[in-house]
């Protein structure tokens, strides 16, 4: 019995040092050396302050910004320390009530658009930190944003087109617009 037991303990200790300390340390060292921007969170600074990460969605409620999807991360949404979705099932009354409120809100804020709304704009993402919306979800907001910024709608639409990323390698995933990057570009445009 002891013949098997002691090696078990020693093997756990050896593998802990190798795969639990050495391996992550080597990966950390190499990543910090080779890809420091990515390794540290793809952070975006404006005028010397960190305004967020290009990979992590954030809340936008003002009319002059494009709005992200509803978020289930934390109580107010887009909490970068509490990722997660609603976990509401398809027959949930809570889900249906929530989507109804979202759709009503969308209609109020974006008059002129008729149903249906893009599915992503009415639903919560899995992470609650989804940085993207679909190109259609950006499109329905273009009129509102243009009016709030007194910019020509065609100008805002062309900006949306510029920030629309296609599918990876032409076929993986879905086309998308990064909300934070688009809104940063809008701010730059308005300043000019």
């Amino acid at each position: 019995m002891w013949k098997q037991t002691l090696p078990g303990l020693r093997m756990v200790l050896v593998l802990t040092v190798l795969t639990g300390l050495v391996y992550p340390a080597v990966v950390t060292g190499l990543c910090q050396l080779l890809f420091p921007a990515q390794a540290n969170g793809s952070l975006i600074a404006r005028d010397g302050t960190i305004v967020g990460s290009s990979l992590i969605g954030q809340s936008f409620t003002r009319p002059e910004y494009f709005h992200p999807r509803p978020s289930g991360a934390g109580n107010d949404g887009y909490d970068g320390t509490l990722s997660g979705g609603s976990n509401l099932g398809p027959t949930s009354r809570k889900l249906v009530d929530r989507v109804k409120a979202t759709v009503d809100d969308l209609a109020r804020k974006n008059p002129g658009h008729l149903k249906p709304w893009p599915a992503d704009l009415a639903t919560m993402s899995a992470s609650g930190l989804d940085p993207h919306i679909s190109p259609e979800a950006a499109q329905v907001q273009t009129g509102r944003v243009a009016a709030a910024r007194a910019l020509p709608p065609a100008h805002v639409a062309s900006l949306v087109a510029r920030f629309t990323e296609g599918r990876d390698l032409g076929f993986l995933g879905e086309p998308r617009v990064n909300v934070l990057l688009l809104n940063l570009a809008l701010d730059r445009e308005s300043k000019r």
Partner: peptide, 8 residues
């Protein structure tokens, strides 16, 4: 069904 799914 986009509830609980990511756009990308």
């Amino acid at each position: 069904n986009m509830e609980g799914k990511e756009v990308r």
